[in-house]
Design a protein around this nucleic acid. Structure first.
Lengths: 207, 207
DNA sequence: AGGCGCATTTTGACGCTGTCAAGATTGAGT
DNA sequence: ACTCAATCTTGACAGCGTCAAAATGCGCCT
């Protein structure tokens, strides 16, 4: 079948779908969203202009699929980071999480743009799995906070939902300002992340 | 001259430039960025497709001009809000500021998108006046914080620059999540804003 | 082994887009 | 009244997303 490529990508009939997803991400990263056209993409992959339509309903749903891949990579990156700092205390863990979030967003902006760009979330397309991924991420945060509260690691008086909304806003905002080139000094990224983490910790710290 | 329209917008020769700016904003608000084409715009204004090119070098510079208008309106809205809450103490003032920022962003997203969208900030276009407006806004915040620190209203130990970066990130992030439809419950906007303000105040409060 | 079916890919076409070049129109200043 | 420069229009071109119909060839059944 096509969804299970035989590892060897024999072309003419092969794993076009996966190749399209990869090449799309590459184009977005190298030349930006403006340079992405289905015709260009098809040409780069060595296939005719309408071939992609047999794997994706239209351009938007190709982008949604790339966004979904973004969620997979994002979750993987967050898990990796959590594993790397498992030993650390809650405050250091928070710092690491903030840095990991913003770093992923900035260094994989071709995915991050799609994951939380308005194009996906406003229109109807919003594939259910994508919405599931996103809501899952937020819910996961809330649950993690609640768990830490129960263990006495976090301030028990804090409303986890409200706090999560604001915390996510902070990380998302910092990420976007860097991605969009409003903040241009990448060297200061970690310092800003740490400042943000301190601010969040001031709320989270048990008292 | 053309920059000083004779108030009476006699058409054939008239204040086309201003009309284009207004109509662009209207289209963006009513139908979104995807629906904006120069040809469509020209038709709505009752002029031929290439007429706009005599007032704006290309589509991007039209959008930049709308973005600049956005900065004007944004600054006006912030000043209005500040005036309305002049009597209030610093904590209430902060709350009002947070609400005013996010409210402007969400309710005037057709401008806000352009003001801080990546399209303007990454490419070369970035007209100097626009960059000036934006930097001015940030610098204004920093100065305002410094001033309040000197008067003992804010915590003197806080680094105003680092704090401003994070605070702006928070407001920007919350705004974007609402604008892009990730947060959909508009009724909770003020509650989230207040939570954010509390968190910022925890840093800002003199100790 | 042979042939059929169906998923996949291609070619052709349509209307829309941004933008350039060249000509037409017209208000303002002498 | 006439010119000049600003403004607007018409014509044209390449590129885009997408649909419809024709071609291709892999994998399964017998």
């Amino acid at each position: 079948m096509s969804t299970k490529p035989g590892a060897r990508g024999a072309y003419h009939h092969g794993d076009l779908k996966a190749v399209l997803l990869d090449e799309t991400a590459r184009i977005l990263k190298e030349e930006g969203e403006g340079a992405l056209s289905l015709r260009n993409l098809a040409a780069r992959v060595g296939v005719s202009r309408t071939a992609p339509y047999h794997h994706f309903k239209d351009k938007q749903s190709l982008l949604s699929a790339v966004g979904e891949e973004g969620f997979v990579r994002f979750n993987r990156a967050m898990l990796d980071s959590a594993r790397r700092h498992k030993g650390a205390g809650p405050e250091q863990g928070l710092r690491a999480w903030v840095r990991a979030y913003v770093t992923f967003a900035v260094e994989n902006s071709e995915y991050y743009d799609l994951m939380y760009g308005g194009r996906l979330w406003q229109s109807e397309s919003l594939s259910n799995s994508l919405l599931g991924s996103a809501r899952g991420t937020l819910r996961g945060n809330v649950e993690r906070i609640r768990g830490a509260q129960d263990k006495g690691l976090y301030n028990r008086a804090l409303d986890p939902v409200g706090f999560s909304h604001v915390a996510w806003g902070t990380l998302h905002g910092i990420s976007r300002l860097f991605i969009d080139g409003v903040y241009t000094n990448n060297a200061s990224r970690n310092r800003i992340c740490d400042t943000a983490a301190d601010m969040l910790w001031a709320q989270l710290a048990p008292r």
